[in-house]
């Protein structure tokens, strides 16, 4: 392609850029000879080449550099790695020594729970000491099945036997525990019974029913029977034992009906 006044700029730029082919060097020189006014323009093109200023320097080279020796590289990589590994090991140890399962938590709570015995619980000693399991077992079953707002006794009555090392308790322990729990957390439905001052009873077989745990009608019957029984001052009366047995049977019937 021939160099003309219409396309000379591209050749000038290629020349100053160092990209002009050798075959165009002679034609370019010939063009400039023929157009001397454009030689000055070629000089202006040459002056457009930028030169970097050597006085401009990056002032923070040291902050960009990285350690190359082994000690500093150890500090950079190995120590944080060891710290992370140590943290993981400590975490595993803590997890293994901390109870998370329900069985473990139940075991710990059971061990921390004071054992309620007839001596410590505020219960009727006669109710707890009755040899007749027919009285205590239905109570346990009914209390366990009866929907009650107080659920812990139900759970504890079922879970306590599962523990590996249960404390030694009387045979009728569930009933005692249930009654003890009921004493600690009285049922709001139970009407408070006015305290009475019964006469001292010397007879061993006299049942002292937990009046505050019974229905009002039962309490009323017991109170009546107790007054009749106490009025009978004759300890040698053979009917006294019959009266006592009749009283117990009457109480049982009333309780079964009321429950």
């Amino acid at each position: 392609m021939k160099i003309t006044r219409e396309n000379y700029e591209a050749y000038f730029i290629d020349f100053i850029e160092g990209n002009l082919s050798e075959k165009y060097l002679v034609p370019l020189e010939a063009f400039l000879e023929a157009n001397p006014d454009l030689r000055e323009e070629l000089n202006l093109f040459e002056q457009t080449i930028q030169a970097p200023d050597p006085h401009i320097r990056y002032a923070h080279k040291s902050s960009l550099k990285k350690p190359t020796t082994g000690f500093f590289r150890l500090n950079t990589y190995v120590i944080p790695a060891f710290a992370a590994a140590a943290a993981i090991v400590v975490g595993i140890i803590l997890i293994n020594n901390f109870p998370f399962t329900e069985a473990e938590q139940d075991h710990i709570s059971y061990q921390n729970t004071p054992v309620i015995t007839p001596e410590t619980a505020d219960i009727n000693p006669v109710e707890a000491a009755l040899p007749d399991t027919a009285v205590s077992e239905p109570v346990a079953e009914i209390n366990a099945e009866k929907p009650s707002p107080v659920s812990p006794p139900k759970v504890r009555a079922k879970k306590a036997p599962k523990t590996e090392d249960p404390p030694v308790q009387p045979q009728n322990e569930p009933a005692v525990n249930l009654i003890a729990e009921k004493v600690e957390q009285p049922d709001p439905e139970v009407q408070p019974v006015p305290e009475t001052q019964p006469e001292p009873i010397t007879h061993k077989e006299e049942p002292a029913v937990a009046e505050e745990k019974l229905e009002p009608v039962v309490v009323t019957v017991i109170m009546d029977a107790r007054s009749n029984f106490s009025n009978d001052k004759d300890s040698s009366n053979p009917r006294k034992g019959l009266k006592l047995k009749g009283l117990i049977a009457q109480v049982k019937n009333l309780r079964s009906i009321s429950l």
Binding site: L64, K65, K66
Partner: peptide, 23 residues
């Protein structure tokens, strides 16, 4: 590139990159 070569790059090119960006 080794860390040593990287540091050489800092010496060689930091000023030049900085001039280019600053301009």
């Amino acid at each position: 590139m080794t860390p040593k070569e990287y540091n050489q790059c800092v010496d060689l090119y930091a000023d030049r990159v900085y001039r280019f960006i600053l301009k």
